[in-house]
């Protein structure tokens, strides 16, 4: 299991290749990448996080996934700082003997890290003015999504 929090961009292809090559006996690798959308003239996004707690929360979520499904490995990488539309924000990768577990675990990881990992996004419009920047509000749907995984333990 690997959890990475960093400001710098990462090479998703290289990470997936390394992740895939390291799995023995795993028949399924699922990956998901979250990308900054350019909706509504968005110029960039600032992602703030809570150093220390972020790594801790992501590790707890990945550990929970590994306990719930038969997984060979889990990778979570999440960026912070300034990101432009089209940039990859984060990626999860799961390896499992069979695809159902790999898909379900990736889905679970995404639902949990959306509302249980301490990241906050602020959106800047094209004028770049700080006074026009807005914090992205959490959606009720994000919280509701967690109900799908009831009994998820300590995360």
């Amino acid at each position: 299991m690997k959890v990475i929090v960093q400001q710098a961009a990462f090479d998703a292809g290289a990470l997936v290749n390394t992740f895939t090559a390291a799995q023995a006996g795993m028949g399924a690798i699922v990956t998901f990448q979250g990308v900054v959308r350019g909706d509504g003239g968005l110029a960039r996004m600032e992602i703030e996080h809570y150093p220390g707690m972020t790594e801790r929360a992501l590790t707890a979520i990945a550990t929970e996934a590994a306990q719930r499904w038969s997984l060979g490995n889990v990778l979570v990488i999440h960026r912070h700082g300034s990101l432009a539309p089209g940039e990859v924000i984060m990626m999860v990768a799961t390896a499992a003997p069979h695809r159902a577990d790999a898909f379900a675990a990736a889905d679970f990881l995404m639902d949990y890290l959306k509302s249980r990992a301490p990241f906050w996004k602020k959106e800047y419009a094209a004028d770049g003015a700080a006074e026009n920047a807005t914090w992205v509000a959490a959606k009720d749907a994000d919280e509701a999504a967690l109900a799908r995984w009831q009994g998820a333990g300590n995360v």
Binding site: M90, M110, S115, R116, P118, W135, A137
Partner: peptide, 10 residues
């Protein structure tokens, strides 16, 4: 102790 709004990761 840390205070913050609901998180928006992912």
């Amino acid at each position: 102790v840390a205070f913050f709004p609901p998180m928006t990761g992912g």
